[in-house]
């Protein structure tokens, strides 16, 4: 065995590097990779946490395919994504675009928009849940009532509940997206705008021909970041529907809530693991589409 001091400088570096990486490598192996493998493995097994563990092959996936609740949940999950992402993208761009042109109280107004990002989803879910209650409890319906407008059923309606649960999630994420958009806007060289002004180009043309194309990387980042967030929505749904998780009639149930229910209320680990594999696949596809979009730059 060679002693440390007999090693060349290069060899010493290798020793140091692996000494630094030893604990993290173990961590990633045991806490990330091994469980990933286990999750996939369990998805092919029939495993009631309290009972036996047997090989099931594709049975869990077949069950999932034939489960009407799963398809309902699948549609809900994509509804969160397909409503939440465009709405928050458009809103945050409009806010950032105008806020960027504002000098007076700029910092204060920016703070107002960013503040919700610093809140806890659980706490805010309960605040919004209170807002959504009927007269005389909920704020929204009280305001409607004071204008003599008919009440709106929010969380009890199968059609309104999903957007109602989504709203605080969009609200909380907006400030982050505004900040990222403003950084993107700041990064556009002013010479582009000056050239456009000299050419006498209108603001709409500047927006669509210069600003938006140059913001594409920023937009791709925001779309991917928020898409992943909406596909994994859980805290808001769980806390706004604790009396009937995912209800009414599964109208708000997202995939993560179904996973939680199956695994930790039904103790059907195999079936739940199959659902997590589906979630993983969906997230992977969304991320790959993003990489494609970035590559085409």
């Amino acid at each position: 065995m060679t002693l440390y001091r007999d090693l060349t400088i290069r060899q010493k570096h290798i020793v140091w590097a692996w000494a630094f990486l030893a604990i993290p490598a173990l961590f990633y192996g045991i806490i990330r990779f091994y469980p990933t493998g286990t999750a996939v493995l369990i998805s092919f097994q029939n495993w009631n946490l309290l009972g036996s563990r047997t090989w099931a092959g594709l049975e869990n996936y077949r069950e999932l395919w034939n489960d009407p609740v799963f398809w309902k949940v699948f549609r809900n999950t994509f509804a969160y994504l397909l409503i939440g992402t465009p709405v928050s993208l458009v809103l945050s761009f409009i806010i950032a675009y105008h806020l960027d042109k504002l000098r007076f109280m700029h910092g204060f107004i920016r703070m107002l928009y960013f503040l919700p990002f610093m809140t806890s989803a659980v706490a805010m879910a309960w605040v919004w849940r209170w807002f959504y209650q009927g007269v005389p409890i909920g704020l929204f319906n009280n305001i409607l009532a004071s204008f003599g407008i008919a009440q709106i059923e929010f969380l009890n309606s199968t059609t309104n509940a999903l957007p109602a649960v989504l709203a605080p999630a969009v609200w909380a994420g907006l400030g982050f997206q505004v900040i990222i958009f403003m950084a993107g806007l700041r990064a556009i060289p002013t010479s582009y705008y000056e050239a456009a002004r000299i050419d006498g180009v209108g603001w709409w043309t500047i927006l669509t021909q210069i600003t938006l194309p140059l913001l594409k990387p920023t937009m791709v980042f925001i779309v991917v970041f928020s898409s992943i967030g909406f596909l994994r929505i859980f805290d808001h749904v769980f806390n706004m529907t604790t009396n009937n998780p995912g209800g009414p009639l599964n109208a708000t149930k997202p995939l993560v809530l179904m996973i939680y229910d199956t695994a930790f209320n039904g103790f059907n680990m195999g079936y739940a693991a199959a659902q997590t594999v589906v979630l993983f696949t969906i997230l992977l596809i969304v991320s790959l589409i993003q990489l494609r979009l970035l590559r085409s730059e």
Partner: peptide
């Protein structure tokens, strides 16, 4: 390896972690 763990959602790991 570390980069690829960004792709693994927490929700997939909670059952094995449990």
């Amino acid at each position: 390896a570390i980069l690829s763990t960004l792709m693994i959602p927490t929700e997939m790991l909670v059952i094995p972690w449990y």
